[in-house]
Structure formats: C-alpha cells, structure tokens
Nucleic acid binder design. Structure first.
Lengths: 167, 167
DNA sequence: GCTTGTCCTGGAGTTGACTCCAGGTTATAA
DNA sequence: TTATAACCTGGAGTCAACTCCAGGACAAGC
C-alpha cells in the first residue's frame, strides 16, 4: 500500500509544493517513484516525514535537516554524529522554550498594564505625572497584584525576567 | 543623559542596521534626533525597545508591532485594542510553547533511539529484520525505559505526543 | 588640522522557505 | 472518448527580515 503526494499532503497538513520543495532540497531521498515517475509514499516514508516536520518545528533549518538525512544514508558510521546533532538542537529548543516562557511572563505584565489602564480610562495612571515615562514602582505594583492573586509561580518567573531586563 | 545608536546596539544585542530597519519600519517614532540629525535614545526609549524585542521574540511580525506602536501614538482611545492585540498574541505564544514542548519530547525519544543504536553499534537493532522500517514495539520500549528511569512526567507527555502523531 | 571612527540616507542585495507558473504527462470518471 | 483531475519538471516570483553599500556629514583624539 502506498500514498500519492496529494494524500500525504492532506495527512501531514503541508502543501504539495512544500513536499516537492523538500524533495528538491534533498530531504526525501527515500521516496520511490512508480513507472510513470510519480512519487509513491510508504507508511514508513510518512513516518520519516513526521520526524522531518518535528525537526522543522524545533527550528532546525532545511539545510541542517538535509545534512541529517544525508548522514542517515551513509549508515551506522554516522550514528554518533546524528545523536550529537539532535543533542545540540535539544539545547536550542530548551533555550527557545525558556525564552518564550519569559516572553509570556512579560506579556502577562503588559496585559495587566493595559487591563488596569482600560479600567481607569487612561494610560496616565501608570506614568510619572506630566511625562510619558512609567512610574518606577509599576513593576512592584504588579508583583503585589500577583501576590494578591496567589500566583506565586508567575511572580517568581516575572521577578527573574525583570531582574534580567533591568540587569 | 542619552545614548547613540551604537551604544543601544551593544546594550540590546542587535545590530545598528537592524535598529535603523526598525526605525524605517515605523517601530521607533519616539526616538528623537539632535541638531546634526543623529538619533538620541533615552532610557525610556531603550526600555520601549526591550518591549519591542520581547514582542519580536513572541513571534509578532514587524508589521504587527508597527500597528501596536501606531495605536500607542493615538492615545487612550486605543487602550482596549492594544490589550486585545496582546491577548491574541498570548494565545499564539501558548500554542508555540506547547508545540515546542511536544517537539522536545519527540527529540528526546530520537536521542534515546540514537543512544541505544550507538551502544549497539548499529541502527538495525531498531528495525524489523531485513528492512529499513522501525519495529512496531519501539515506542513501547522507550516507554518502558522512561518508566525504569522514573520519568513519569516525560512518559505522560510522550504518550500524548505519540497518540497525536499516530492519530 | 588631520585621521579615524561613528553616524546619516536611500536604495540595492541576500537569505530562507516557500509559492506559483508554464507546459507537459498520466489517471479516472461520465 | 473526452474532459477534468492529479501528477511531473524547471525555473521564476514572493515575502519577511534583515544586511550591505555608496556617498556624504559630524565628532574626537592626537
């Protein structure tokens, strides 16, 4: 049993053009063709493509994934290299996750900022009078708000982010 | 006290060209110039730029950040719109974090796959004999490994990801 | 006062990851 | 059997986000 490019496209949620682009870029050397030259994908091919998409989601470039696939073709001699490549991308990924969490923390602070401003009807409640600069105690006020909410995890995270940003 | 574009560049870890690009794109209408036409950044400007970089890290496009900044210039009438814009990006961000965590889970599985293959000296230990396809019980083996390690959180996450992928 | 460094603008070039198109072949359904 | 749907290739186009460059102005150290 095999699948056409259109079926795989639907299954994986990526366009036909993208699959062909990946093929051109050397990401799919394992996909066979029928007599007419059309691609025929096996279940295993689709599984491998899920791994490729996973690496993409992890922020690995098409060029790097291509290197990984080329190593795969070379056999067992490259096992360790492949392991190291993944380990490296795990580090990147961990950093990305940390960054996004920090960004989220900051975003929540900004949401609080705008929620309170909307309630007050003006942004000025956060400014030093007669300026466009924020009050120095603003972040402290937000911490108090988090404490009142009992959100100690977010509080802890925000304090870290704030320390970093004001470094 | 004010800073030159070069100082800000170092402070924020982005290039001078990128700062000028952001300015051209309408992200920095608040930055003033001196008599000679050079940009002079205040502490508050730098603080605002950190927020812009934060939004960038959250995956917000330069065009969307520009909209946000334009709303800021329009004053209190846009407070609610700004809050909603942030709330929307919070959703995106939460999705990104979830995706990255799932990707991480899958990456760890692949690392285990390669670690065991390296130890065995060949990738074939994971294949159905005489094929290039993986054993159907492979993921189960990994689950057993996680259980033995006592890593029940990762186990739980991996099972979810696996269910989704094998949907 | 001269050299070297930092800044300015407008605009062109680059990169990565697609996305689209022309022109053609094969498969399927009425 | 004929239309239309799905596939093929090579190559051009697009888009976002930079990145670089030419040509010129101002600043700072010696």
């Amino acid at each position: 049993m095999s699948y056409s490019i259109g079926q795989v496209s639907k299954e994986l949620g990526i366009t036909i053009d993208t699959i062909r682009y990946y093929d051109k870029a050397g990401l799919l050397p394992f996909v066979n063709r029928n007599e007419a030259g059309r691609r025929e994908f096996t279940d295993n091919d689709v599984h491998l493509m899920r791994t490729i998409i996973c690496l993409k989601n992890a922020g690995v470039s098409v060029a790097d994934i291509s290197i990984f696939i080329q190593m795969r073709l070379k056999g067992d001699g490259t096992l360790e290299q492949r392991y190291n490549l993944l380990k490296n991308h795990e580090k990147n990924l961990q950093q990305q996750i940390t960054d996004l969490k920090d960004t989220m923390s900051y975003l929540k602070y900004k949401e609080w900022y705008y929620k309170t401003a909307v309630e007050a009807g003006t942004e000025e409640i956060h400014f030093v009078p007669c300026t466009n600069g924020c009050l120095p105690e603003l972040e402290e006020q937000y911490c108090d708000y988090l404490k009142k909410q009992g959100d100690l995890i977010e509080l802890d995270n925000f304090v870290n982010v704030r320390d970093y940003r004001n470094r």
